[in-house]
Amino acid sequence: MLAIAMPPASAQDETEKAIEKYRQMLKEDPWSNPGLLDSDRGEGLWKTAAGPNKVTLEKCDLGQGAGVVDGAFAELPRYFADAGKVMDLETRLMWCMEKLQGISHDELVRRPYPAGGQPVKDLGAIATYVASKSSGMRFAAKLDQPQEKAVVDEGHAIFFRRQGPHDFACATCHNESGKRIRLQGLPYLADSKEAKQAVGQWPAYRVSTTQVMTMQHRVYDCYWQMRMPELEIGSDVSVALIAYLVKNAEGGEIVTPGLKR
């Protein structure tokens, strides 16, 4: 309705203003954020025995020692010697679900994201819980180990890699300030200033789909739009892109679960 009634720039402004007002209200009354329902569910799941091994995730090491959740997200992605890989939050949670709880990798990657309007799946709810325990902190992933630097560089290359029938790359939409697709504003993610504002909001509650979307899901959805096949959760490509984005957002405030249109 806004789009029809007003010139586009101001319609975009009005929508953004309305969402900004909603964000402000959530700041004043944080308990009204719908994403917190999933965060609470995630906390419950973290402490609930599950999988063939019937154990909880409370011994999962997110990088700060077994079971430490507070502040863990703020220092991810990172290299994990036990896995021999750089992992972001969701990939690390999958690793713990596989190694501690005995859930098969195939099962974890099969259908990791909810359909429109459905609540975020268990893995995403746990990720939302863990991320929320770094809310108010700043991105401080060091990413200075050789393995970590290589992954950030790879993410940078993938960000600019054009492919598929439309020749699209992440950079097609996210390499300039102030651009839009239709009326949707696009963050300039290769830029530290805008990356700082955008990346720290994920996992975020999306008003348009009434569900929490995680960062892995966000990247998967971009590849859908780029006319690529289904990007596997926890793949080297998604982890590298997330590492690159978090590196660009270094020092930015984490305000998750955020609120997106």
């Binding site: 950030v152 560089d153 993938i158 890699r161 492919q163 096949p229 990007l231 080297d236």
Partner: peptide, 27 residues
């Protein structure tokens, strides 16, 4: 970036395991 493009290409080819055979050209 100092990224190795051969590794990027290989990782892209692995990152979409459910891709139908006739979609592989998109990588």
């Amino acid at each position: 970036p100092a990224a190795d493009t051969a590794k990027v290409d290989a990782d892209i080819a692995k990152a979409f395991p459910t891709a139908p055979a006739d979609w592989k050209s998109r990588f």
